[in-house]
Simulated assay, not measured.
Amino acid sequence: MTTGAPPPTYPARPRRSRLRTFLPLGVAAWLVLEIWLLTVVAGAAGGFTVFLLLVAGFLVGSAVVKRAGRRAFRALSETLQQQQGGVAGAGAGGGAVGKSEGNGFLMLGGLLLMLPGLVSDAVGLVLLVPPVQKGLGRFAERTFERKIREAGGGGLGDAFQQARMRRPDGKVVQGEVIRDDAGSGEASAEGPRPPLSR
């Protein structure tokens, strides 16, 4: 005898992203390729040559990472000095942004050089070339802006614009929300409330 109740519905299982599907396969294929290339080079040139290549890659990669870290620290300290100096000093040291451009790809290239393997060394060396860094930086910026627009309907600037309350003349308004209960005089008896913490 049926009661007429609908069968229970279960929520649909979310689709697994392509990245989570193919990333483990890509990493496994990369490791197999690295090991195969190391054995081929060891068979052709000898094991000591492969060892020297790996040590040289590690040393060059660590020097590149150290240099990129110094550049990033120098750019950060220049930016902080400009902010402390105020608007007058902003025009004098405007090159800090230009110097730090490409630091992320420089650091990534150094890390890839430090990893043991010939493919990672080749990719790391390519990432050290400045035109490649600039091209990849523009591509990453366009991709990031597109993802932000798809998620929020506007660019990154629009997201920050919406996060602030502004007066019509463009000034940021600091304020607090005070709930005024019409039936009771408790709000006025308590006095002003402290501002909300940020």
Results as ranks from 00 to 15, higher is better:
8 P>N: 01
14 P>N: 13
17 S>V: 09
20 R>C: 01
20 R>G: 05
24 P>M: 07
27 V>G: 13
30 W>I: 14
30 W>S: 09
31 L>T: 11
36 W>C: 12
38 L>G: 01
39 T>D: 13
44 A>K: 04
44 A>H: 04
45 A>H: 08
45 A>C: 11
48 F>A: 04
49 T>N: 08
51 F>S: 07
52 L>Y: 03
53 L>P: 11
58 F>M: 02
58 F>C: 07
58 F>R: 02
67 R>H: 07
70 R>W: 04
73 F>R: 02
85 G>I: 08
85 G>Y: 11
89 G>W: 06
96 A>D: 10
97 V>D: 05
98 G>Q: 12
102 G>L: 00
102 G>A: 03
105 F>R: 07
108 L>K: 04
108 L>N: 02
109 G>M: 04
110 G>A: 15
112 L>C: 00
113 L>S: 06
118 L>N: 03
119 V>A: 07
120 S>K: 07
121 D>A: 09
130 P>C: 10
132 V>W: 09
135 G>R: 00
136 L>G: 04
139 F>R: 07
142 R>Q: 02
148 I>D: 03
149 R>K: 05
150 E>W: 09
151 A>E: 11
152 G>V: 11
158 D>S: 12
158 D>C: 03
159 A>D: 03
160 F>H: 08
161 Q>G: 15
162 Q>H: 00
163 A>H: 05
163 A>F: 08
166 R>K: 03
166 R>N: 08
168 P>R: 10
171 K>S: 06
174 Q>E: 00
175 G>I: 09
178 I>R: 15
179 R>Q: 05
179 R>C: 10
183 G>T: 14
187 A>F: 07
187 A>E: 01
189 A>Y: 02
189 A>D: 14
191 G>R: 06
195 P>R: 07
198 R>E: 13
198 R>K: 10
